[in-house]
Amino acid sequence: MQIFVKGLTGKTTTLEVEPSDTIENVKAKIQDKTGLPPDQQRLIFAGKQLEDGRTLSDYNIQKESTLHIVWR
């Protein structure tokens, strides 16, 4: 499925993911596209910070959802 990651600059990155992907895995995909290391990424969805060990489905993140990224 496709999801979007929007940064503070307003730039949006598209990712191809599975609902079973962990947040850690998603951060690795973001690094592949942007070069930003996972330890500098904070992902937010529906006002919650996403924890590395959880999956996208744990947070009810579905296709075409938009996550927000904040740099540490």
Rank of each mutant, 00 (worst) to 15 (best):
M1L: 06
M1W: 07
M1C: 03
Q2S: 10
Q2I: 15
Q2F: 12
Q2N: 10
I3K: 00
I3N: 01
F4P: 01
F4R: 06
F4W: 07
F4M: 06
V5N: 01
V5M: 04
K6Q: 10
K6Y: 06
G7A: 09
G7V: 08
L8H: 13
L8T: 08
T9N: 15
T9G: 15
T9Q: 12
G10Y: 05
G10H: 09
K11C: 11
K11F: 14
K11Y: 13
T12M: 14
T14N: 06
T14E: 07
T14Y: 07
L15M: 05
L15T: 01
E16R: 09
E16I: 11
V17R: 00
V17Y: 03
E18N: 13
P19F: 07
P19V: 07
S20E: 09
S20D: 13
S20P: 03
D21F: 07
D21A: 06
T22S: 08
E24S: 12
E24H: 12
N25Q: 14
V26L: 13
V26H: 00
A28D: 06
A28V: 10
A28N: 11
K29S: 04
I30D: 00
Q31W: 15
D32P: 03
K33N: 06
K33C: 06
K33G: 04
T34R: 04
G35A: 04
G35C: 05
G35L: 04
G35P: 02
D39K: 10
D39L: 09
Q40T: 08
Q40G: 09
Q41L: 15
R42D: 10
L43N: 00
F45G: 02
F45E: 01
F45T: 02
A46S: 08
A46H: 14
A46V: 06
A46G: 10
G47I: 02
G47A: 04
K48Y: 08
Q49M: 13
L50A: 02
D52N: 10
D52H: 06
D52Q: 05
G53M: 09
R54L: 10
R54Y: 13
R54N: 09
R54G: 05
T55V: 06
T55Q: 07
L56W: 02
L56Q: 00
S57G: 11
D58N: 04
D58F: 13
Y59F: 04
Y59I: 02
Y59N: 02
N60V: 04
I61W: 01
I61D: 00
Q62Y: 09
Q62S: 12
S65C: 05
S65T: 07
T66M: 10
L67V: 11
L67D: 00
L67T: 01
H68C: 09
H68I: 14
H68P: 01
H68M: 11
I69G: 03
I69Q: 04
V70A: 09
V70L: 11
